[in-house]
Design a protein around this nucleic acid. Structure first.
Lengths: 198, 198
DNA sequence: AATTACAGATGACAAATGTCACTGGTGTTA
DNA sequence: TAACACCAGTGACATTTGTCATCTGTAATT
C-alpha cells in the first residue's frame, strides 16, 4: 500500500511520514506542495493521497479535484488545521474519502486510513455538525466583491473589476456586511474567509 | 534528559513527540497548551522546554517569559510556523536558547537540541536576517489603537477604550497606516500582526 | 539657552464607505 | 395570473474614515 503525503511544512511532514512508516506498513512518499504532489501522482501509482489544504502553488482542494477526476480509484484524505465549513463542503462535493483535523492524535489518523481502505467515508463529526448550520448566505456577486475587498481593493477598483457602478459594488458589500452580521467590509471578509466561503 | 513539548494541535504534537522519542534518547512529555505546560513545569523537573507560539490560554511567548524567570536553568526552544520578526525579538529578549521554524526537517530539530545542550544559542538564519531590517515603527499608542481596530472596533469605541478624543484615535490610526504603507486601518493591522508587532 | 526631534493630543476638512429606497428581471407559489 | 421572493443594478444621502495643520510637553543635541 503506497501513500503520498502532501504537506508544505517540513517538520510536520517528516514527523508525520516517519511515524506513519513506523505505526503502519504503508510505504510513504512525501510531496512538499500541491504541484509536487500532482507531478508524483502522474509518475507513480499510489493507493492513498493524504493532503493538507493550505499549501503554496496548488491548494489541497484543487489537488483533490484534479486527482479525483484523473484517478477515480485513488483514495483521498484531507488533514487540516482549518475547520471551515466551506472547505468540507467543497471537499465532499469532489468526492473526498476522508476529512480529518490535525487536532486529533496520530492513532486516529492510522485508524481512519484503515476504515477508508474498507470503503468507508470518514469525516470528523465536529466538522459535519458545523457544516450543517453554517449555510453560505452570499450571492455570487457579493462573494466576488467581498473577496476583492478582502484583498484591500477600494470600491472604485472593485466596481471596475466587476464591470458595475460604484454604487452597486458598495451595495453588494453592504449586503454582505448585513448578512454576515459584520460592521464593515473587512470584518465581513474575515468572517467569510474563516468559514471557507471565499 | 527530560523534554516538555507544548503544542496544541494533537496530531502534530503526538507525531513530533513520537519521533523525538525514537530519534533521540530524550524523555518527552506532552502539554496541550501554554497553561498545561506551566503546570507541568511546576510539578516536574525538565531540562528543555520546546514550545509552539500560537496556543490557546497562554501563548508560547508568555510561557517562555514566565519560565525563564522562574527556572533560569531551563533551556527553552521555540518552534513555530510564523516567521514574524516581532516574535523573534521578544523571544531573544526573554533569553530564548533556540528559535526554529517548522519549515525544517525533524533531523534539524534533533541536531539543534544537541547544540543547545552544549550552551549554544541556535536561531534560524532566515529569521535573524528578517529581524534585522524590520524595525517596528509604531508608538505604544498607535499600537494599541491599531490592535483594537484590527479586532473590528469603531473609531468611537477605540477612543473610549483609550480615553482619548475620536480625532486622536483616527490620527493614531492614520499614522500607523502611513508608517506601514497600508491603505486603510485593516490592512495596517494585518501587516503589523503579520510582523508580530501587535 | 536655543534648536531640534518626536510623541501626545485635537478639530476641521475631504474622501471613502455604508445604508436606503427604488427599478427591473426571473422563477416559484397560491 | 397575481402575488411573492429573489438577485442584479443604480444613485442620493448619512456616516465613518483618513489626512492635515496645529498646539503642547519632553528629552536630546548644539
Amino acid at each position: 500500500m503506497k501513500i503520498l503525503l502532501a504537506e508544505d511544512q517540513a517538520m510536520i511532514r517528516t514527523a508525520l511520514a516517519g511515524l506513519l512508516r513506523l505505526e503502519s506498513n504503508y510505504t510513504v512518499d512525501e510531496a512538499v506542495d500541491g504541484a509536487d504532489a500532482k507531478q508524483k501522482l502522474q509518475e507513480n501509482h499510489y493507493d492513498i493521497l493524504l493532503t493538507d489544504i493550505e499549501m503554496p502553488h496548488i491548494s489541497g482542494l484543487e489537488l483533490l479535484q484534479w486527482a479525483k477526476q484523473a484517478q477515480p480509484h485513488l483514495l483521498t484524505v484531507i488533514i487540516t488545521t482549518f475547520n471551515r465549513s466551506g472547505y468540507i463542503k467543497r471537499a465532499v462535493a469532489a468526492g473526498v474519502n476522508g476529512f480529518l483535523l490535525k487536532d486529533a492524535p496520530i492513532e486516529v489518523l492510522v485508524q481512519s486510513l484503515q476504515k477508508i481502505q474498507t470503503g468507508q467515508q470518514v469525516i470528523s463529526n465536529e466538522l459535519l455538525l458545523q457544516a450543517l448550520d453554517d449555510q453560505d448566505p452570499l450571492t455570487e456577486k457579493e462573494r466576488k466583491a467581498l473577496r476583492l475587498a478582502g484583498e484591500g481593493m477600494s470600491t472604485a477598483a472593485i466596481a471596475k473589476a466587476l464591470f458595475i457602478a460604484e454604487g452597486t459594488a458598495r451595495n453588494y458589500l453592504s449586503e454582505a456586511i448585513s448578512k454576515l452580521h459584520a460592521s464593515n467590509r473587512t470584518e465581513a471578509a474575515r468572517i467569510a474567509h474563516q468559514k471557507g466561503w471565499l
